[in-house]
């Protein structure tokens, strides 16, 4: 009886010990606690689910928006750059060319702007509840993948409309292109989200920055029109590698530029790590200054 009691008590103590929390001053870089992150996976899911729900709440409007935005952008770009400015498009119909670029570009730009706003938008949660804050910008990226899905349906429509025959094996490269896109937008997103908590004018500067960025990304023009000597500079923008590789592999615009792709992979990983590093460095003050 007695030993039984002790055994039970021992068990209870063990459970308690696993829950023991020591709260003490945080200095320097907050460490990334993977065990904790794993235990918050449901909250991550709920945040993503909320964003998707809110975006597609009025179903008609939500889906229409996800479809119309890239479609109308494609039409405007086709008229202005494809027809009026006669920008070359690697010998394929300009609408297909530009839409392929926009597919990935929109993931990048929307993820970046959602993620950088996400902390400020969830300020009341951050002030009142403890949670690993890195999940907030990360969850806000998920909704852009749903947008991507709808935009991709339109892409199929455009391809069929033009009777264009894509290289289906090229789709094998799509996951890699998506990973580059998400890594770089999430990395920058973490960085700007943290900066946005401290400096509230970041939100006004960032859309402008994103708008300009599209011009140093081969979305509306092919990378091939950039002089060879400067192409490496273009490759420093990780979206160059992602978009060019997707176009080359799926649309067969050219051979895959492995060098450019390699640079993009490396740069996107650098962005991801840098963004996370800056985020963790500044995180401990968020709830006080947000």
């Amino acid at each position: 009886m007695a030993s039984n009691y002790l055994e039970k008590k021992g068990k209870r103590d063990r459970i308690k010990n696993t829950m023991k929390a020591i709260i003490k001053p945080k200095k320097g870089l907050a460490s990334l606690d993977f065990k904790e992150l794993w235990s918050y996976r449901e909250l991550f899911y709920f945040f993503a689910w909320r964003d998707i729900k809110l975006r597609y709440k009025q179903t008609m409007f939500g889906v229409t928006w996800a479809i119309m935005r890239p479609f109308i952008t494609m039409i405007v770009f086709t008229v202005v750059f494809g027809k009026l400015a006669a920008v070359p498009s690697d010998n394929i119909p300009y609408p297909i060319f530009v839409y392929a670029g926009l597919l990935l570009w929109n993931i990048f730009s929307n993820s970046l702007s959602h993620a950088s706003q996400s902390l400020v938008e969830n300020a009341n949660v951050i002030r009142k509840v403890y949670l690993p804050k890195v999940i907030i910008p990360a969850a806000s990226v998920i909704v852009t993948l749903v947008d991507f899905f709808f935009a991709a349906l339109v892409f199929i429509g455009i391809i069929v409309y033009y009777g264009f025959i894509p290289n289906l094996q090229g789709l094998l490269f799509l996951p890699l292109c998506l990973v580059i896109t998400i890594f770089s937008s999430l990395g920058l997103g973490w960085f700007f989200a943290a900066l946005n908590v401290r400096f509230r004018d970041v939100r006004y500067a960032l859309p402008f920055f994103i708008q300009l960025l599209i011009f140093v990304t081969p979305v509306i023009y092919p990378a091939s029109i950039v002089p060879k000597a400067y192409q490496w500079m273009l490759s420093l923008n990780p979206m160059t590698g992602a978009i060019e590789t997707f176009k080359a592999s799926f649309l067969g615009t050219s051979a895959i530029n492995w060098e450019s792709l390699g640079i993009s992979v490396v740069v996107s990983i650098v962005f991801l790590i840098f963004g996370l590093w800056y985020f963790l460095k500044t995180e401990k003050n968020f709830s006080d200054i947000i």
């Binding site: 010990n17 023991k20 929390a21 003490k24 945080k26 009142k128 509840v129 403890y130």
Partner: peptide, 19 residues
Amino acid sequence: TKITSPTEGRAIINGRVGS
């Protein structure tokens, strides 16, 4: 609740915290 961190000292909590 760990929402904000202390400047000095420490606290030990033996259990699951809800706030």
